[in-house]
């Protein structure tokens, strides 16, 4: 989920003009090469007494590879490749692999990110209510799933950016009040990112 968010941010890290509109943002959404972006994550969960903070990097390689490498407070790698979701926690030596199902929360967000990355506005409109606003202080795009049979999938994603600036913030809101916020800073792009992505995938896919 967070991976997806960060990917979205990555995609949004392209410059937005002062006359940002949904169409113009979507048109500029598709990255031309592999990209990475660093993040600061803050989670506010009902079952945690304090907010939780983490940091790391997001990586994206079109059409369907998205990775999140958390570096603090402890190392953790999550990834999506096609319809597969991978997770690896080196500290616990925990490794999972599962398939994304259409109905679950993560799939809803993956679909959203794929739609955004591919600039497929028609697809997004069939599954999400899109709300794009601009103010003097910046632009904002909110995606709300239209159909859900699970309160957990009633996630609202909000992306924000400064005028004529890259997207610098992504918020994820759940129906039960839990909230995750990412602050984003563009990092690298190109062959170096591709190599890094390959290394991380090798770790995730290894038995």
């Amino acid at each position: 989920m967070r991976i997806l968010i960060s990917l979205l941010l990555t995609l949004l890290s392209c410059n937005a003009s002062a006359k940002d509109s949904l169409d113009s943002v979507m048109a500029r959404m598709k990255p031309t090469q592999a990209i990475s972006i660093t993040y600061q994550e803050t989670r506010t969960l009902g079952l945690l007494s304090d907010t939780w903070k983490g940091s790391g990097s997001f990586y994206a390689v079109l059409p369907d590879i998205m990775l999140k490498e958390q570096l603090t407070p402890e190392k953790e790698i999550m990834g999506i490749k096609g319809a597969q979701l991978y997770y690896y926690h080196p500290g616990n030596d925990q490794k999972h692999q599962s398939e994304l199902e259409d109905e679950d929360a993560v799939s809803f967000q993956v679909a959203a990110f794929k739609g955004l990355m591919n600039g497929d506005l028609a697809f997004l409109k069939t599954r999400y209510a899109l709300e794009f606003t601009t103010t003097a202080s910046g632009w904002s795009l909110t995606l709300t799933p239209k159909q859900t049979n699970d309160s957990e999938t009633a996630t609202k994603m909000i992306m924000r950016g400064l005028p004529e600036q890259v997207a610098n913030k992504l918020e994820l809101l759940l129906a039960d009040g839990d909230r995750t916020e990412y602050r984003l800073t563009p990092a690298l792009q190109g062959a170096a990112v591709k190599t890094k992505v390959q290394q991380l995938l090798t770790v995730l896919e290894a038995r």
């Binding site: 989670r43 969960l45 079952l47 939780w52 926690h89 616990n92 999972h96 929360a105 957990e152 839990d178």
Partner: peptide
């Protein structure tokens, strides 16, 4: 705590 922060958080929250 780890479970609540993991990809399985959705189900773990309900159970916990």
């Amino acid at each position: 705590k780890q479970a609540l922060l993991s990809p399985q958080a959705v189900i773990v929250k309900k159970v916990a």
